[in-house]
């Protein structure tokens, strides 16, 4: 099983809301956090353990850099410690890289879809899955550039990785729309190549436009194009965990709860209407 997340909407949990979630236990089916924020000990992981006592948790990594020239062994050990303590319902990372020759770049850099990409990534994913003793989900990223002469679509790379490692996928529909605006990719063509059965989780969020470039800030509500793509995807998948992410202009928790309830109702309506 790729995840044990509830098959409904979940929310991204960010630091401004942690206290309130511990105290008030709002009705959210599951929470997703960024794994690296809970590396080490002390107050952060103690707070997460309190939340874990009441909710399923998805650990979503942002800094492993699976496509980097090497894996960071300290990072892997810290993730393993976190996974052992939290017993998460899902563990995920991105199809991205962030380190080359001891030099780290704090962002989700797109992997060049050139000769060697499948071998590089599948070796790393196998290693991580063996180390964690569980499958992980890999997420498509929003991109701002393309490498020259790329030989695969992002979805083709992801499909190969699923086939070769048994990993699952996070499908971020917002990221597809961002890459469509910035690079002209066809989200529906990407969708056609993705093994939807291996999608363990969907992400939606909002981007913001700066000088004509769609920046994936997670700083706004999802756009109509994102909702439309979401509907197409979840009609095909049936009930599946869908995460709403918000990282910028973070609203108060009660306001975010309204967005969450809206998403939950929206998904439920589609799944009720969809034929099994």
């Amino acid at each position: 099983m790729l995840t044990s997340l509830p098959l409904c909407a979940g929310l991204g949990l960010r630091s401004p809301h942690i206290q309130a979630v511990i105290q008030d236990q709002p009705p959210v089916a599951w929470w997703e956090v960024h794994s690296e924020n809970y590396f080490g000990g002390g107050a952060p992981i103690a707070a997460l353990e309190k939340i874990r006592a009441n909710y399923p948790i998805s650990l979503h990594g942002v800094a492993m850099g699976l496509g980097s020239s090497t894996l960071d062994s300290l990072h892997l050990k810290q993730l393993k410690t976190l996974v052992d303590r939290i017993e998460p319902a899902a563990v995920s990372e991105h199809l991205a890289w962030n380190r080359l020759n001891q030099h780290a770049y704090a962002d989700l850099l797109p992997v060049p879809r050139l000769e060697g990409v499948i071998e590089q990534l599948s070796e790393r994913i196998n290693l991580v899955q063996d180390f964690l003793q569980r499958p992980i989900l890999i997420e498509n990223v929003s991109s701002y550039i393309q490498f020259a002469d790329e030989i695969y679509l992002e979805s083709e790379v992801l499909a190969q990785l699923v086939a070769q490692t048994g990993c699952g996928l996070i499908l971020d529909v917002n990221n597809l729309i961002v890459s469509q605006i910035n690079l002209g990719i066809d989200p529906y063509l990407e969708l056609a190549h993705l093994p939807l059965k291996s999608v363990g989780e969907i992400h939606i969020a909002g981007f913001e436009l700066f000088d004509g470039v769609a920046i994936d800030t997670h700083g706004a509500a999802p756009t109509p194009a994102v909702w439309q793509l979401l509907d197409v995807v979840i009609q095909q998948t049936g009930p599946i965990p869908v995460l709403l992410e918000r990282d910028n202009h973070i609203p108060a928790l009660n306001e975010l709860m309204l967005d969450y309830q809206h998403l939950n109702a929206h998904c439920a309506a589609i799944w009720q209407g969809a034929k099994p």
């Binding site: 630091s15 960024h34 690296e36 979503h60 991109s143 910028n248």
Partner: peptide, 26 residues
């Protein structure tokens, strides 16, 4: 006692290729 002093996690910024400030393109 420690809960009151939990810091904001810096890694939220690195999520999904966005910057925490709205000047990413400038």
């Amino acid at each position: 006692k420690c809960f009151g002093v939990a810091k904001a996690g810096a890694n939220d910024c690195a999520a999904n290729g966005h910057a925490c400030a709205g000047q990413a393109g400038a």
